[in-house]
C-alpha cells in the first residue's frame, strides 16, 4: 500500500511557513475547471471512474447492522440491470459496524473504511482515540478515516496535531490512514493548506476535507488547495498521497469537475481509487442516472434506481 514514511528522507518543515493562499486567485482557477466541457466518451469514462472512486457512506447515530448490510449490497450491485458497471471503492461506517460490513463485502474487492478518533468532533483524549482506531482495525477495517483536533490547530498547537496523527498512523498498522481536516471549521484556505502539510508530513496516506457533519464541506476551492499541497509534497518528498473530498458532492457534474481538477493539478496517476475517493452517499445514483441517460438518450427517474 502507501509508501512508508521511513522509506524516504525529508525534514519536517516549519508549518507556520506553509505557502500562502490567495482565495480570489483560487476561485478564478477553480472556475476554469468548472468551465471544462466534458462530452461523449470522455464523459462516460469520467462517470465510470467517479463510480469506482466512491466511498459509499453511512455515518448516523441510527445506523444498524440491517442498514449497513443493505448499503453493502448496493456497493457491490450498483445497478445490475446494466451489466459491466464497476463497484464503488469502499464502504465507510462507524467502528461498531466494521465487522458487519467486512462480512458483507467479502470477495467483492470493496474496502471497508471506518471513521475513528471520536468522529466527528475528535474531542477525546489520545488514549480513547487510539483504542477507537485499534478497535476498528481489529474488526477488519482496511482504511481509517481520522479527524484532526481542530481546536488545537486553531489555537496554534501544530505539534500536538502532528503528534496525534503520527500516533494514530502507528495504530493503523496496515490500514491506510485518511486524515480529515474538517475544513469547514478551519475556515481559511491558509489554514487548509497548513493542516494538509501537517497531515502529510505526519504520515497520512490520504487527506480528506470533511466529516460531512459541518458546512461548508468539500468545496472545489478547498479541494483545489489540498491538491496543490499534495503535489508540492510529492515534489519535495517523492511520496504520493491520496485525496478524498467528502460532503456536498452530490451530483455527476460536481464529480466530473473534481476529476478534471485532479487530472489537471495532479495528473493521471491520481485518477484511480487508490489515490482519489469521493466521500458521498447520494452521488452514486446520480452518476448511474447520467450513465443511463448517456447510453439511452432519455432523461431518467429516480424511481428506477435503488436508494440504499
Amino acid at each position: 500500500m502507501a509508501k512508508k514514511k521511513g522509506s524516504a528522507t525529508f525534514s519536517i518543515p516549519d508549518f507556520t511557513q506553509s505557502p500562502r493562499i490567495d482565495k480570489v486567485g483560487v476561485e478564478e482557477r477553480v472556475s476554469r475547471f468548472q468551465k471544462r466541457s466534458i462530452k461523449k466518451e470522455a464523459k462516460m469514462q469520467g462517470l465510470r471512474m467517479a463510480l469506482n472512486m466512491i466511498d459509499l457512506t453511512t455515518l448516523e447515530g441510527k445506523d444498524t447492522p440491517g442498514k449497513v448490510k443493505q448499503m453493502c449490497f448496493k456497493a457491490a450491485h450498483l445497478h445490475d440491470v446494466h451489466p459491466g458497471l464497476p463497484t464503488v471503492a469502499a464502504v465507510c461506517v462507524y467502528p461498531s459496524m466494521v465487522a458487519t460490513a467486512k462480512k458483507e463485502v467479502e470477495g467483492t474487492g470493496i474496502k471497508v473504511a471506518s471513521v475513528s478518533t471520536a468522529f466527528p468532533s475528535g474531542q477525546a483524549p489520545l488514549e480513547v482515540k487510539l483504542m477507537d482506531t485499534k478497535f476498528a482495525v481489529d474488526a477488519g477495517a482496511d482504511e481509517i478515516d481520522m479527524v484532526i483536533s481542530r481546536g488545537k490547530f486553531l489555537s496554534g498547537e501544530y505539534n500536538f496535531v502532528f503528534d496525534e496523527i503520527a500516533a494514530i498512523k502507528e495504530a493503523c498498522g496496515n490500514a491506510r490512514l485518511k486524515v480529515i481536516l474538517e475544513t469547514g471549521e478551519l475556515v481559511t484556505l491558509d489554514n487548509v493548506r497548513r493542516a494538509s502539510d501537517i497531515a502529510m508530513y505526519a504520515g497520512a496516506d490520504f487527506i480528506k476535507t470533511s466529516t460531512g457533519k459541518i458546512q461548508p464541506a468539500a468545496t472545489m476551492q478547498v479541494t483545489y488547495t489540498m491538491l496543490e499541497a499534495i503535489r508540492d509534497f510529492k515534489l519535495k518528498t517523492g511520496i504520493q498521497v491520496g485525496m478524498k473530498p467528502a460532503g456536498g458532492i452530490s451530483n455527476s457534474k460536481l464529480a466530473l469537475h473534481n476529476l478534471v481538477m485532479v487530472n489537471e493539478v495532479l495528473g493521471g496517476e491520481w485518477l484511480t481509487n487508490e489515490w482519489f475517493r469521493f466521500g458521498a452517499s447520494s452521488l452514486a445514483n446520480d452518476v448511474l442516472m447520467q450513465i443511463m441517460k448517456t447510453e439511452t438518450g432519455v432523461y431518467q427517474s429516480s424511481d428506477y434506481f435503488s436508494i440504499d
Binding site: R36, S37, I38, K39, K40, E41, A42, K43, Q45, G46, M49, N52, A89, G109, K111, L259, V260, N263, G267, G268, E269, L271, T272, N273, E274
Partner: peptide, 16 residues
C-alpha cells in the same frame, strides 16, 4: 481496485 501506479489517460473529447 485499480493497479498501483496505474496512470489513467483521460483526454477530453472535442466540445466545439
Amino acid at each position: 481496485m485499480a493497479k498501483k501506479n496505474e496512470k489513467i489517460n483521460w483526454e477530453y473529447a472535442p466540445a466545439p
